[in-house]
């Protein structure tokens, strides 16, 4: 499944980049993620609970940040396993400053599903992706507007 989207934020790229590199923030804004534990440099153990309509599943696995080009881009590598199937995704995230205080975040990547999710979930996948990315952008926006959440 192709993942693609973009959103404009009222913040400079370096600020967004920094937030995205912060495990606590990332855990807060990533839909479904309930726990993100650093297990090594740029590597996290992630627990996610996805609840969406007819689907509800507990996922666990790894999240890795690679190819960091601060503040322009990085690649998020996700491997999540569950009883209802597994998800593996490589997503490139680009931050492009479109003005002094504006940045366009765009992501482009591919998610691979296996097991039950792959077999039965096709009809709903792009909808899930759309909604999850909307939620992510909204949460990131809120983080950016809330100074209390700025990483040190």
């Amino acid at each position: 499944m192709h993942l693609k989207g973009s959103h404009q934020f009222n913040a400079p790229a370096h600020q967004i980049f920094k937030m995205l590199m912060d495990a606590d923030t990332l855990a807060r804004i990533t839909p479904g993620v309930s726990e993100l534990e650093e297990t090594g440099p740029d590597t996290y153990k992630a627990i996610a609970n996805v609840k969406m309509g007819p689907v509800s599943g507990s996922f666990s696995g790894q999240l890795e940040v690679a190819e960091k080009q601060e503040p322009e881009s990085f690649v998020l590598k996700i491997q999540q396993n569950s009883k209802i199937g597994n998800v593996a995704a490589d997503v490139k995230i680009d931050l492009e400053e479109t003005g002094a205080e504006t940045t366009t975040l765009s992501f482009d990547g591919k998610a691979r599903l296996s097991g039950l999710l792959a077999r039965t979930g096709q009809r709903v996948l792009s909808g899930v992706a759309n909604t999850l990315s909307k939620q992510f952008f909204k949460a990131l926006e809120e983080e950016l507007e809330n100074p209390a959440h700025q990483p040190a």
């Binding site: 691979r112 296996s114 792959a118 077999r119 039965t120 096709q122 009809r123």
Partner: peptide
């Protein structure tokens, strides 16, 4: 089958 050889229409819903 998708690129990973996953059968993606394995039910009567698809």
């Amino acid at each position: 089958y998708d690129e990973d050889a996953q059968l993606i229409n394995g039910s009567y819903m698809d």
